[in-house]
Design a protein around this nucleic acid. Structure first.
Lengths: 347, 347
DNA sequence: TTGTACGCGTTATCAT
DNA sequence: ATGATAACGCGTACAA
């Protein structure tokens, strides 16, 4: 069995109360006693049981981060940001991967509440508003979302406005037949909505044939989706994508089909993952400061956790359009500058 | 305050013992009572406090995975493997990122022991043998390592043999001036050792100038290291790298410096991350089944946790050399098959 | 079949 | 300054 506070007390000849005082640094303790206790702690290798501590204190000093896909390059950096702030405040982090499944997400939240985590961070939740309200009634939480939300602690980066901007960028470059590679079929997809609004505002039709949704995000899924798009709507000359992974998949598809980027087809992504600047043509995309997002939302959660009652604060992060080469808008789209290290179409 | 077992008992008019029985599904309970209790549980939203449960049972149903770098594409898939097995057995997973810092790693282990996790998974630990022995004396643990280890539960994939093989591959292709991009300067680096042994066994000199170590693994670090390598030893025609990230960085460097791959320089990696098959020339590398590794080590940990006393089992995973294009060994290294989607030299 | 009571390792409230 | 002791919420001998 592990060594407990009683062992230390017995060893030192004081009461457990005193040991507790020394260990927690609260309350006055004679320096001599303090030293003796500290010595015993070290010698016995005493480590306070966080369970017992949490049981009585009601605080576990642990938080959970729920993300959709750890293999999506978006999330690791985000998690790092969360973790760095959390650790600096003495918090441990539970990482939970929902595999983009809302059921899984709910299941995790259930389990976490049993674990008595002090707070939960949601990044790109798949829950609907009602579910979200229920959860936020029972947990201290902070979230990163691209869905408009007027209550609670949220770091908001507008997916709708983001895709409006990328799509408008394509329109501004003269494209008229613009396709979209989207995530899921949900009617309330903000990014998809941004795509639609851009078309509409510029007087273009939203054509179902030019839209392909895929359930799970990956380069390979993007490649396949793009191929499908070109079959359904060969006239497409511009593609705005849900994110960079899909966009890179689209680049592959273009390469396979002999469509030159950006000369024949312009492709624009979202997220600006590290890979985006590495591919050739380098991907034009919306930059999202992932690490900073993680730091911000964890800071918000700290506020939430130290506040009695509801805590409302919405932080807005404006994604930035990063113009590279995949849309041909970059002044010197000189192919001779490209390195011969290329992405392959398929393995 | 949260609803406790007492609330449910009061609501139902039974004792907490009965509620406990129903909730845990142990012991005989009259079906009628059972239903009433279940109803109350649902209505009140009762959720057993895992802290209290863990305190009395000595089990928390949670494990921790300690990894070096969540942003290294190696780890996310590994973690997924761990998580899938863990979840299937009702375990939650703490994810801990050490940022390749052994001190951080020790700190995490300390904290985790306070959290009473039931087990710990180490993936590519930075601890030395002595530290490892100490830790394994106090915790149930399983590990993935490329360092030979004859005790405990370990999934072993031989880094030494792996780099021997990649280096030997280069030698077999006729290369004589072979460089190495390594991680850290540690004398006990297994992969570096494999590189050295290959040279020696084939009668080649180990030349210090042809070796560059970098402290942190990334594509960018690999690029810079490769540039340094070419400055120190311009005669190099083959490079065996610690992992794929470095190798891809090396590909970039070659591109920048006008050295054609594989015609002028052959590059070989290790890990076979998804990106490896996407770059052109596609990277020749050692394939490591990351997801499977995660599943295996979690299964081992389950064994460890359900076994009284020490549990010893070493699983060997043989990495496979995947011959692609970056060494020119692929029969038809026909450049015209390459897609125009390329990696850029720098952003 | 069901209930009482104790203990898990802490923290914190009271005395002393 | 320090020591008994009561919670915290739950599992489980043991009793009924």
């Amino acid at each position: 069995m592990a060594v407990t506070i009683h062992d230390v007390a017995r060893e030192t000849g004081v009461s457990i109360r005193t040991v507790s005082r020394v260990v927690n640094g609260r309350g006055r303790v004679a320096e001599a006693t303090r030293q003796r206790v500290l010595a015993a702690v070290k010698e016995l290798g005493y480590r306070p049981n966080a369970l017992a501590r949490g049981l009585v204190s009601g605080k576990t000093l642990s938080v959970a981060v729920i993300i959709r896909q750890i293999t999506d390059p978006f999330f690791p950096e985000f998690v790092q940001g969360v973790e760095s702030v959390a650790r600096s405040q003495g918090y441990s982090v539970f990482l939970c991967n929902t595999n983009e499944d809302p059921q899984q997400e709910l299941a995790y939240i259930e389990a976490l509440s049993a674990k008595q985590v002090d707070g939960i961070i949601l990044c790109g939740t798949g829950l609907n508003t009602e579910q979200l309200d229920r959860v936020s009634a029972f947990h201290r939480l902070a979230m990163v979302t691209s869905r408009e939300r007027r209550e609670g602690a949220v770091v908001y980066f507008p997916g709708e406005a983001g895709l409006f901007e990328t799509t408008a960028h394509l329109i501004g470059l003269g494209h008229r037949a613009i396709g979209h590679l989207g995530w899921r079929t949900r009617a309330d997809g903000e990014r998809f909505a941004g795509y639609g609004r851009a078309l509409t505002e510029y007087g273009l039709e939203v054509d179902r044939r030019r839209i392909v949704f895929i359930p799970r995000v990956s380069i390979e899924a993007g490649r396949l989706a793009a191929r499908q798009l070109f079959e359904q709507a060969p006239e497409v000359t511009g593609i705005s994508c849900y994110n960079d992974l899909m966009a890179i998949g689209a680049l592959q598809a273009c390469a396979e089909l002999g469509r030159r980027v950006p000369q024949d087809v312009a492709v624009v992504g979202f997220d600006d993952i590290p890979l985006a600047s590495l591919v050739t043509p380098a991907l034009t995309t919306m930059h999202v400061p992932r690490y900073k997002l993680g730091e911000m939302v964890m800071c918000l959660l700290l506020q939430v956790m130290t506040t009695e009652g509801p805590y409302d604060e919405q932080l807005y992060v404006q994604p930035q359009l990063v113009i590279r080469e995949s849309c041909g808008a970059c002044g010197r789209g000189d192919a001779s500058f490209s390195s011969p290290v290329k992405l392959k179409g398929r393995r």
